[in-house]
Simulated assay, not measured.
Amino acid sequence: MSGFRRYAFAFGPLAAAALWGGMYVVSKWSFTFVPPATMGFLRVALGGLALWLGVRLTGRRTGIDRADWPAFVGLGGWVALTIATQFLGTELTNASQGSLLTVLTPVFAVALGASVLGERVTRPKAGGIVIAAVGTVIIIAGQYDLTTIAAGNAAGVGLLVVASFAWAGYTVWGVSVVRKYSALTAATYSTIAATPMLAVLAAVELAVLGRGIASIPVTAESIFATAYLGLAATAAAWYLWYKGLEFVSAGTVAVFFFLQPVVGISLGALLLGERIDPGFVVGSLVVVGGVWLVSRERADDTDHQQHGNDHQKRNDTNQ
């Protein structure tokens, strides 16, 4: 792997983290005019449409084997579970509790990567994850009152934990699909598969609330929220997230999730003039150090693994 491509995978997950930086605030705000499950459906439906148009415009031929369609449907199930539990959990919790997503998702992804895919969890990788997690806690402690994590709605916290696990599942079980086809194909058809699942949940939600689809207001605010969540936080971010899986392990890609609060708070300071305290600076440096340690260690391991694969291919050819 060349010096550039050795770390090029980082741009995808890093960009995805940037797009997710303001997602909690936008989604929480959007629930004042669109119910959570319904907004989840609108988000994924718009994102799936945008990704499908991307496939068509790039002229990419999918050529998906019929035997692989269940894998795409399975990924769609992970997506639907993630969105439903994340949005409902966000509605029921506060900002500090919402930070559980950031801390737990990489941990779940590394554990699943090791148990499901047999990915190695070396000491540098484990150490980098711990360092990045500590940095994230420092950042969150400076922004929120951590005592409120134990307060409030326990069901909402439980839903956020499930959402963290589900996104880790989407990441880990997406590895084989991404590497057989492409990041764009995997993101597109898994999102499309999730759309009818979330449509059912949205219909149930609206029925329980005694509302119809016509009750959803069409305003500048609702259009902006749906567009941001559907086009930026879904279509673009999910493709970029999966793009990282084309190069390295699921556990390595997941570590970039720790950068989400760093990017989100930085954007808030840059665009909204929000205050940044010293704890944010210290925590950000700690997070970046942990992510760098993991990405460097796995880049080295990827080189060794690739050399081993090439050697095996040569042996198979000679035989």
Results as ranks from 00 to 15, higher is better:
residue 306 Q to P: 03
residue 84 A to H: 06
residue 184 L to Q: 05
residue 218 V to I: 13
residue 264 G to C: 05
residue 85 T to P: 01
residue 70 P to M: 10
residue 113 G to Y: 06
residue 35 P to E: 09
residue 113 G to V: 00
residue 259 L to G: 08
residue 67 A to K: 11
residue 49 L to W: 10
residue 80 A to K: 02
residue 39 M to R: 04
residue 184 L to R: 07
residue 175 V to K: 03
residue 299 A to S: 13
residue 226 T to K: 02
residue 140 I to S: 15
residue 144 Y to I: 02
residue 264 G to Y: 06
residue 243 K to S: 15
residue 290 G to V: 03
residue 307 H to Q: 15
residue 249 S to E: 14
residue 196 P to E: 04
residue 261 P to S: 14
residue 50 A to Q: 11
residue 3 G to D: 11
residue 37 A to G: 02
residue 187 A to P: 02
residue 230 G to F: 03
residue 200 V to W: 04
residue 228 Y to S: 04
residue 171 T to H: 10
residue 247 F to K: 04
residue 178 V to D: 08
residue 233 A to V: 04
residue 219 T to F: 07
residue 271 L to P: 00
residue 69 W to I: 06
residue 99 S to T: 09
residue 68 D to T: 13
residue 176 S to T: 14
residue 196 P to K: 08
residue 276 I to A: 07
residue 289 G to A: 12
residue 167 W to M: 14
residue 274 E to I: 13
residue 226 T to G: 01
residue 283 G to R: 05
residue 216 I to P: 01
residue 154 A to M: 14
residue 291 V to I: 14
residue 13 P to N: 06
residue 181 Y to K: 11
residue 146 L to K: 11
residue 88 L to F: 07
residue 282 V to F: 15
residue 25 V to W: 11
residue 10 A to W: 05
residue 228 Y to L: 07
residue 75 L to G: 00
residue 144 Y to R: 10
residue 275 R to C: 09
residue 8 A to L: 13
residue 168 A to E: 02
residue 305 Q to W: 13
residue 233 A to H: 03
residue 171 T to S: 15
residue 304 H to R: 15
residue 145 D to P: 12
residue 213 I to L: 08
residue 68 D to A: 15
residue 79 V to A: 06
residue 33 F to L: 13
residue 149 I to R: 09
residue 226 T to S: 03
residue 299 A to R: 02
residue 149 I to P: 03
residue 76 G to H: 08
residue 18 A to G: 13
residue 104 L to C: 03
residue 228 Y to T: 12
residue 144 Y to H: 14
residue 19 L to C: 12
residue 170 Y to T: 01
residue 104 L to D: 01
residue 93 T to Q: 04
residue 85 T to V: 05
residue 171 T to Q: 13
residue 273 G to F: 08
residue 164 S to G: 15
residue 58 T to P: 10
residue 318 N to L: 15
residue 91 E to H: 10
residue 168 A to D: 05
residue 287 V to F: 00
residue 296 R to C: 11
residue 175 V to I: 11
residue 285 L to D: 05
residue 262 V to Y: 10
residue 136 T to S: 06
residue 159 L to K: 09
residue 91 E to S: 12
residue 310 D to L: 13
residue 38 T to C: 08
residue 141 A to E: 08
residue 290 G to E: 01
residue 3 G to R: 08
residue 81 L to V: 07
residue 129 I to R: 03
residue 183 A to G: 13
residue 69 W to L: 12
residue 16 A to S: 13
residue 166 A to I: 11
residue 249 S to N: 12
residue 170 Y to N: 07
residue 107 V to K: 04
residue 215 S to P: 04
residue 294 V to Y: 11
residue 117 L to D: 06
residue 111 A to K: 06
residue 110 V to G: 02
residue 209 L to Q: 08
residue 168 A to G: 03
residue 261 P to Q: 10
residue 267 L to R: 07
residue 74 G to H: 00
residue 29 W to K: 12
residue 274 E to V: 05
residue 3 G to W: 13
residue 181 Y to W: 10
residue 251 G to I: 05
residue 41 F to E: 00
residue 24 Y to N: 09
residue 176 S to C: 11
residue 125 K to S: 05
residue 221 E to R: 12
residue 143 Q to Y: 04
residue 151 A to D: 15
residue 290 G to S: 05
residue 206 L to N: 00
residue 159 L to Y: 06
residue 156 G to P: 05
residue 218 V to L: 14
residue 240 L to K: 06
